[in-house]
Design a protein around this nucleic acid. Structure first.
Length: 485
RNA sequence: GGCGGCAUAGCCAAGUGGUAAGGCAGCGGUCUGCAAAACCGCGAUUCUCCGGUUCAAAUCCGGAUGCCGCCUCCA
């Protein structure tokens, strides 16, 4: 498959270095607050990548870390009156709650920075021995950026340009403003670990270098994360690892694009973020997951509740067709009439298109378009009175259902039992709109009676008042049903 | 200022140099007591603009304009 490699700025054919074994490392969260849509996107994108790599028959070892010690956690701990460890614990637990709902598979290893302090100290020592790093009198250890040939390769920067952007915090004893911290001396009241340079804590970039090497071995096949991590985090991570080992760090760098709000990046600092739990209070988790896959993973994606409602309808359409296909498959009488061969050919085409989209840099948006192609095909077949009872239609229907299930496994969608899902959707909408179900049922009963009495004037009047409440009454062969408009 | 990305119908969005997927909304038809759902049909002679390469460009090259991101913590 083709994957866009940030290292070279183009799509490249991906294959694992070990014959059938992909080693994948993705930067997880810093556990200091609830996750927002941006975190969800990153998690979903790499979840789909893992699922798809597995589909291709490769064995995947996936590592996703937690940063459980850093400035923001310490700050948050002070604000919440907890220890840094307690803050990390709390938000890691919240992460699992949110991500489990979104259908994010657990990684094979989910290490925390604080579990790898000895390794980080060893890596720092290695770098000092090689002359790439130095310790200051006050117990900080910095990486000497200028000693590393090619710094800036990943993020497309050169050292001279970076110069202007850097600044030195008061009290820092850097040799050069560009140098970044490997180890930070503890300030009073901060959590610390003993080290050859005194009590302190690791810098941010170090953990990923250490954990990826220890758990997967270098070079990694793929290293992933959000676009905003490319610089400085990934650049520094790559630099220190390559300096230490003298070899390659990661063969492919994959970066997902941002979630935006009104065309601006959703971020903590701008305060324009919506948490996953805010969304799940109003929408089914699968709707959010689907939404996050409706655009190519490298492009910016604008989030809004309006888009969520739109996505909800689109996903509902797929489940509705799945429900119809289930019903259709459960028929007991079949005729021998034929089905035009084009239908099967069309489906084969869609199957190929789906795979081609996924093979092309994980184009989930394109792939979803082809899923709808299959939905339309199914509906067309089910609707046709000449076809719907035929044995070939039974087989084609089963094949479409199997395709939807298969595609959905790779995307982490469409796995629910259709009727149950549709019922869940209705409940979710009722809750969101604060509807009074008892009142709705009463009105429906009135309309039912009026209809039976052929008093269509009253029946329509009732339907109008239901509509005013946001309820749509529908008459089907099976009787009256309703849905949230 | 440096580097990078994006500009496709009312909105969202895919698009491998060969003549514009799909979703939402809208309109017409089938179905229906009337509707809804579903299906069928309609909708960009055109892909921000201007040049260039080519038999052929939304797709490649150059330029302009606009928006965004990174350069500082950030998925």
């Amino acid at each position: 498959m083709l994957l866009y490699n940030s290292l070279r700025g183009k799509k490249e054919e991906f294959f694992p270095l070990g014959k059938d074994h992909v080693r994948l490392y993705v930067c997880g969260i810093t556990a200091y607050d609830y996750c927002h849509v941006g975190h969800a996107r990153s998690a979903v994108v790499f979840d789909v990548l893992v699922r798809y790599l597995c589909f291709k028959g490769w064995k995947v070892t996936f590592v996703r870390n937690f940063t459980d010690i850093d400035d923001k956690i310490i700050k948050r701990a002070a604000a919440e009156g907890l220890s840094a460890a307690e803050v990390a614990e709390k938000y890691i637990a919240a992460f699992y709650e949110d991500m489990d709902l979104l259908g994010i598979l657990r990684a094979d290893h989910e290490p925390r920075a604080t579990e790898h302090i000895p390794g980080m100290i060893r890596l720092s020592q290695r770098l000092i021995e090689k002359g790439y790093a130095y310790a200051t009198a006050q117990g900080d250890v910095y990486f000497r950026v200028r000693t590393f040939e090619g710094y800036g390769r990943l993020s497309g920067r050169n050292i001279e340009e970076l110069r202007s952007g850097t600044r030195v915090e008061p009290g820092e004893q850097k040799e050069d403003p560009l140098d970044f911290a490997l180890w930070k001396a503890a300030k009073p009241g901060e959590p610390f670990w003993p080290s050859p340079w005194g009590e302190g804590r690791p810098g941010w970039h170090l953990e990923c270098s250490v954990m990826s090497e220890e758990l997967l071995g270098l070079p990694l096949d793929i290293h992933g994360g959000g676009q905003d991590l490319a610089f400085p985090h990934h650049e520094n991570e790559m630099t220190q690892s390559m300096a230490a080992t003298g070899g390659e760090f990661a063969r492919f760098w994959v970066h997902n694009g941002f979630v935006q709000v009104n065309a601006e990046k959703m971020s903590k600092s701008l305060g324009n973020f919506t948490t996953i739990r805010d969304i799940l209070a109003n929408f089914l988790p699968e709707v959010l997951r689907f939404f996050l896959l409706t655009k190519h993973y490298r492009s910016p994606l604008d989030f809004s509740f309006d888009s969520m409602e739109e996505t909800e309808k689109a996903l509902q359409r797929i489940y509705q067709t799945m429900a119809l296909l289930r019903e259709h498959g459960a028929r007991t009488k079949w005729s021998n009439s034929a089905l035009p061969p084009e239908l099967e050919e069309e489906l084969s085409g869609l199957e190929n298109d789906w795979t081609r989209a996924m093979e092309d840099d994980l184009n989930t948006a394109g792939a979803l378009g082809h899923v709808f192609g299959a939905v339309r095909l199914a509906n067309r077949m089910l609707e046709n009175k000449g076809w719907q009872k035929s044995t070939p239609s039974r087989d084609l229907g089963a094949r479409i259902l199997a395709d939807l299930h298969y595609w959905g496994q790779a995307l982490g969608l469409f796995q629910a039992e259709p009727q149950a899902w549709l019922t869940g959707l209705k409940d979710s909408r009722v809750r969101r709109k604060g509807l009074d179900v008892v009142r709705v049922e009463e009105l429906l009963a009135v309309r039912q009676q009026a209809r039976q009495a052929k008093d269509f004037e009253q029946a329509d009047a009732v339907r109008q008042s239901l509509l005013d409440m946001g309820i749509e009454a529908r008459d089907t062969p099976a009787g009256q049903v309703w849905d949230v408009a």
